[in-house]
Amino acid sequence: MGLYTSPGIYSGTEQYDAVDFEVPMNLSLYNYYGKSSIENIFNWSPEEDQWWITGFSGQNPDFIEPNRDLMAIVGTVDLSKYTDIYGTKK
């Protein structure tokens, strides 16, 4: 999950760039088998502010071949210090 700016043209290709600030973020991943069966894979809440956050790791042998159909992600991005980025399109 990341924060990016509007696209620009770089070397003839439309690309997004990272924002020039960092904010609190957290990320959790679950295997969802059903309403009463949810397995927590990880919860990541870094102490440092971020512009991009991820939780992958090839080191856990239980998740070498995960079933993506079971996966559910929950993430938050705290933009309360940057309320000026909110706006309405006209």
Rank of each mutant, 00 (worst) to 15 (best):
G87P: 04
N40D: 13
L27F: 09
G75P: 02
E65A: 15
I53T: 00
A18T: 14
F21N: 02
N26P: 05
G55N: 03
L70F: 07
P7S: 14
T83Y: 06
R68M: 14
E22I: 06
G12A: 07
T13C: 09
G55R: 01
Y10R: 12
F42D: 06
E39M: 03
E39F: 07
N67G: 06
G34P: 00
W44L: 14
E47D: 12
Q15G: 09
N43P: 03
I73H: 08
T54C: 12
Q50H: 02
K89A: 15
N40Q: 12
R68E: 13
K90Q: 14
D84H: 11
Y30C: 01
Y10V: 11
Y86W: 07
M25T: 03
F63Q: 09
M71F: 06
T83R: 13
E48P: 02
K90E: 12
E22C: 06
L27M: 09
D49I: 01
Y16C: 07
Q59R: 11
P24F: 02
S57P: 05
E65I: 15
T88P: 03
S28P: 04
Y30T: 04
P46F: 01
F56C: 09
Q59T: 13
L79S: 03
Y82L: 08
G12L: 04
S57W: 02
D20I: 02
P66K: 03
G2P: 00
L79H: 02
Y86V: 06
G55S: 02
E14T: 12
S36T: 09
